[in-house]
Design a protein around this nucleic acid. Structure first.
Lengths: 336, 336
DNA sequence: TTTATTTTTGCACACGTTTGTATTTTTGAA
DNA sequence: TTCAAAAATACAAACGTGTGCAAAAATAAA
């Protein structure tokens, strides 16, 4: 391993001052063309690479963005991580990805790490566990801008990119009602989180508008797994409160439900109507094809990045507070 | 936004030297208990956060790991990214994720960024595009250890975590043969990459062992999308060389194939046997259930991280060169 | 007390850049 | 030539930490 070459090394070899080398490398017009060429060719020949730690310590040019998501291996988030990584990279930023694993405590630790590493900004979708937003306020105290997407903290003055969960759930519920379903269940996450609360409200609003007598069961779960989907559905079927249709907040849960309908010979859509949130990779292949509410991942990623970049460059635009709402799409297939 | 507090600020307030503060914060035994407590409580009260840029510039304690994958939104990789992120975080490392988008050029740029940011180590699965490994050698020149997983550079002296692609494809092919399939096609990626080459060889080896007369079509594609899967399969069916079974290297391609079998009323497994690489989330639900070769993502992540950590801490163990081979699993379901 | 020993703290420099200012060199006009 | 203006370069300080070494303070031994 060879020692890393620095601008001082270059300066010494070329018998000039290192400040001149620094300027030459950044194409500062104040340095003579001949010396600049000299420096550049020398640098290239010796594989000079700037030390960003020094640059960032100096305070100039911080190009690191932190991205916090509850789970990376979840198609909604992995899509967004992927898109954001590309967007940021194109603009010269480096993205570090953190995973809260849905835990508030981990989220807090991550925030500390982010402050310590002097990230230029943060894009985050919060953990299900998170009710307190002091840690994000701490971030702001340190001058690090935050953009929230999808799952957001509501009691904080920071830009947010939201999905039209109320409206779309209202529409989805109404669609089921119009199709003749009368006993509509809703399986979703904790109402502490805006996403699930909004869906919940949209669902309730539609139910109330159509004055359905059925006492609709709402199942709140804090884990989204296939196995749990099976269990929840079994319990529903075995109860005296069996629904004739379900709006489900998670693909994984929906998979469990489907698997269970197969086992119990329950016909979808005749015995059970089904609408799920999320984009199923296999949606074309699963039969019946599942109606779903597709999330606009690309748009979310673009908007979030755009907002954050604005905050990073114009620190004074930090008072952006109008929430951006992007539209998800209800795609009716064969399951209802 | 308040100014960030530094050890010098603390020192000034407490009328001691900043070096003492530095030691106190890191529990150096050389500092008096009373002063340490004083420093610690002051630091906590004023929300002191260490500046890692300074630490890293100083040369001590670099805790940043870079992870390069071709695509994050690909369940195989997103699983590994997720697992690695957690593993690394537990051990006090920060993970930055980069996406080569299967492009050699982007991979090269990423390497430069990694050098410039002084990452402690790199874990990488290379782009389909990548044939040259000079950029990884450059990394090594700068003393940054690299661990390859799955898709690796073979002409470089660095630890690699591989999957038993030859064996498993051999088994899969033989399984199809034993089931009576005689016209087995293989759809896979470029043989420039070890993963696909090994699968290719395993497939050929099984074919040759059983002396199948059929001139088996091998389709090499450089993109793995559902649409392409449809097209490739259509072309195969419409050719005079129609296979009676397929081993496919990508879930997405397999989805396309399945979709096309539905449209053409081709019965799986009777008219077409099918085995795919990768873990299908919906495998329980899709009918027929698809036989698949499941990838040991967790094991890959753990092994890769373990190797890298060893390299980071014991720079002299850099001559580890024995490749680790982990086993994927052939799960026979209903599609063959 | 005095001296030796141990514990604790301070000093100064280093890490690799950037940048305002001062200094030198070059250029052009008188 | 001489002098002013412009161009090019050098100087020095700063960013926040960590560390070897010296100095000081506290403790123990004589």
């Amino acid at each position: 391993m060879k020692k890393r070459i620095t601008i001082k090394d270059i300066a010494r070899e070329l018998n000039i001052h290192h400040s001149t080398v620094s300027r030459a490398l950044r194409n500062d017009p104040r340095v003579n063309e001949k010396t600049r060429d000299l420096v550049l060719s020398f640098a290239q020949k010796h594989e000079y690479q700037i030390n960003m730690n020094a640059v960032q310590l100096r305070g100039t040019g911080n190009n690191a963005i932190a991205l916090i998501v509850p789970n990376i291996n979840h198609s909604f988030f992995s899509d967004i991580v992927s898109k954001l990584t590309n967007l940021a990279y194109e603009k010269g930023y480096v993205i570090s990805v953190f995973q809260s694993n849905e835990k508030y405590l981990q989220e807090k630790e991550i925030i500390n790490t982010i402050i310590q590493h002097n990230f230029a900004g943060v894009i985050v979708s919060i953990a299900k566990d998170t009710v307190n937003s002091d840690h994000f306020r701490l971030l702001q105290k340190f001058g690090i801008p935050v953009v929230f997407f999808d799952r957001v903290c509501e009691d904080i003055n920071s830009p947010k990119v939201l999905v039209n969960n109320f409206d779309i759930t209202f529409s989805a519920t109404e669609h089921l009602i119009n199709k003749g379903y009368k006993r509509i269940a809703h399986i979703t996450g904790t109402t502490e989180i805006n996403v699930f609360r909004d869906r919940h409200r949209g669902y309730i609003a539609a139910i109330q508008k159509h004055e359905l007598a059925y006492k609709n069961p709402i199942v709140v779960t804090d884990e989204f797994t296939m196995d749990l989907g099976k269990k929840i559905f079994s319990d529903l079927v075995d109860s005296q409160n069996t629904p004739d249709s379900i709006i489900c907040s998670s693909i994984h849960l929906t998979m469990g439900i489907l698997s269970e309908t197969r086992k119990r010979k329950i016909n979808v859509p005749n015995d059970l109507g089904l609408i799920t949130f999320g984009n199923i990779l296999a949606s074309e292949i699963i039969q019946p094809q599942i109606s779903s509410i597709e999330q606009p991942e690309a748009e979310i990623a673009e908007l979030s990045f755009e907002l954050l970049e604005k905050l990073i460059t114009d620190k004074n635009s930090l008072n952006i507070n109008e929430d951006k709402v992007v539209k998800s799409q209800l795609i009716i297939r064969e399951s209802c």
